[in-house]
Amino acid sequence: MLAVSDPLKLYGRAFGSRLLVGTALYPSPAVMREAVRESGAEIITLSLRRQNPQQRQGRMLWDYIRESGCWLLPNTAGCKTPREVITLAEMSREIFQTDWIKLEVIGDDYNLQPDPYGLIEAARELVIRGFKVLPYCTDDLVVCRKLLDAGCEVLMPWGAPIGTGQGLLNKYNLRTLRERLPDTPLIIDAGVGAPSQAAEAMEMGYDAVLLNTAIAKAQDPVQMARAFRLAVQAGREAYRAGLMVKRQTASPSTPTLDMPFWQQVDKTQQD
């Protein structure tokens, strides 16, 4: 683990893992627990939903959360307006005893695209109320800048729409964000379907990757969690090592000097 030499710093807090994982969609709670453990994640996402007193899931999940020792990142998934967001965030803060919030304001039901206007308005209000806001946003530079202006210290642009597993759909925009916001922690959130895509995001210089479906819906979620842990580590190492510059033409790896069979004089010309 890169905990000591290369921590992920978010809102003044240091983490050893650069992989954040969701807790939904697993075949069972037991598989979820094992997958989260195998992923090495130190930050997990979760949510709030209506519940009647007879349902015990909330209590059971709460017990697991306390056992896991993970840092909690409650989300506002499903909210469509800043007002809904504010209410759910306040409820989250009371239950989970954290002022961290993964801000989601959905602007389109078909691709679950974040509503940029709602995001900025909600972020402003949440920051005023003392929340540490991690917005799930699009890869638009101007929107991201306005979220920073609103007081967000971390941004979480999408790789692709939630649950699609399409990977990094707009690499130009994602590279632009990385280049133009060099001091902002950037986390790819959503759309990552394969460890190679997570590694690619890390190679681009992204600080971390947040995902859920790619692990939870794998045939073997625990093994896939491990694969993502390794991919994120590999990508980060590669970024720090510095990738070679791409070239248009070939360049031999093996020395050309003292190549056998090579003759200085062309025999065909002598005959």
Binding site: T23, L48, R49, Q51, G58, N212
Partner: peptide, 10 residues
């Protein structure tokens, strides 16, 4: 009234 409790989430 809305009464909510922790659930899994992404």
């Amino acid at each position: 009234l809305d009464v909510v409790a922790p659930v899994v989430g992404g």
